[in-house]
């Protein structure tokens, strides 16, 4: 499925957060939304998924979700958003229980999602017993269990420490390459954007506007190879130049209420 944003603007009261965003997320691509904190990336993601109504502009989807997709537009959250009173499998099942599936199918979907994220042996654990990385795996498993057509990820790795982040990123990339689900990946982390995305959309600081869209031509599978190191580093510098000034100003901004 394809996701089309046309002329999206949004304001919270007098505060203008997004200004005239025209953006198409192509079917089967991973698009990174990169920008300094407070640039409206998360707001844009909320608008894309329909949980926020933009002040102006419209979002539309083109194409049909794949057969078996229970929740075409599915989020993965920065803070994992797991129910602490449900076990790992219970948290995954939450996304399915109201879909009137046959008991067998529900169990099969939960089992498969846990297997794909290597969580099978933790299926009866409660979230508090898991590390941050494992918790986000549960969040990913929950998203996979509904066979999403579009994945919207809001800084899914930024609550994790650096090593966990790298490990989970590689695992996630493997999962993603197997399905190539249309994805939007919000991040302020250059490294994640360069590693995962087919295209990187750089947003300016508030009010967020599209500054430039950079295509990463190398296939994801080859990006970690030593021969790609130079090209990746150059791309990183180019992007850093694009966002540095914005990040510096954004850092000095006073947070609003």
């Amino acid at each position: 499925m394809e996701l089309v944003c046309e002329g999206i603007s949004h304001r919270y009261g007098a505060l203008e957060v997004l200004d005239g965003i025209d953006l198409t997320v192509r079917a089967g691509e991973c698009l990174a939304l990169l920008g300094p904190s407070g640039c409206g990336k998360s707001t844009l993601l909320g608008i894309m998924g329909g949980i926020l109504k933009p002040s102006a502009g419209r979002v539309s989807v083109a194409g049909n979700p794949p057969a078996g997709s229970l929740n075409p537009i599915t989020y993965i959250f920065q803070d994992f958003a797991l129910l602490p009173w449900r076990t790992v499998e219970g948290n995954v099942a939450l996304a399915l229980e109201h879909r009137n599936l046959a008991a067998g199918e529900l169990r099969a979907r939960v089992g498969e999602a846990l297997a794909r994220t290597n969580l099978t042996e933790f299926s009866t654990a409660f979230p508090r017993q898991l590390s941050g990385g494992m918790r986000q795996r549960v969040g990913i498993a929950r998203a996979l269990a509904v066979d999403p057509a579009i994945l919207l990820m809001d800084e899914p790795l930024s609550a994790l420490d650096a090593q966990t982040r790298d490990l989970l990123m590689e695992d996630f990339l493997k999962l993603w390459l197997a399905t190539r689900t249309t994805s939007v990946y919000v991040t302020h982390n250059l490294h994640e954007a360069i590693r995962l995305a087919d295209r990187i959309c750089v947003l300016s600081r508030r009010p967020g506007r599209i500054k430039e869209i950079v295509a990463v031509d190398l296939p994801q599978a080859d990006r970690a190879m030593p021969v790609a190191a130079r090209a990746m580093a150059e791309l990183g510098e180019r992007l850093w130049d694009a966002i540095r000034a914005e990040a510096q100003v954004a850092e000095r901004e006073i947070a609003d209420g």
Binding site: I51, N71, A95
Partner: peptide, 10 residues
């Protein structure tokens, strides 16, 4: 965020 999560899964 938990309520929003539940709503996002419809």
């Amino acid at each position: 965020n938990l309520i929003r999560m539940a709503q996002s899964f419809d």
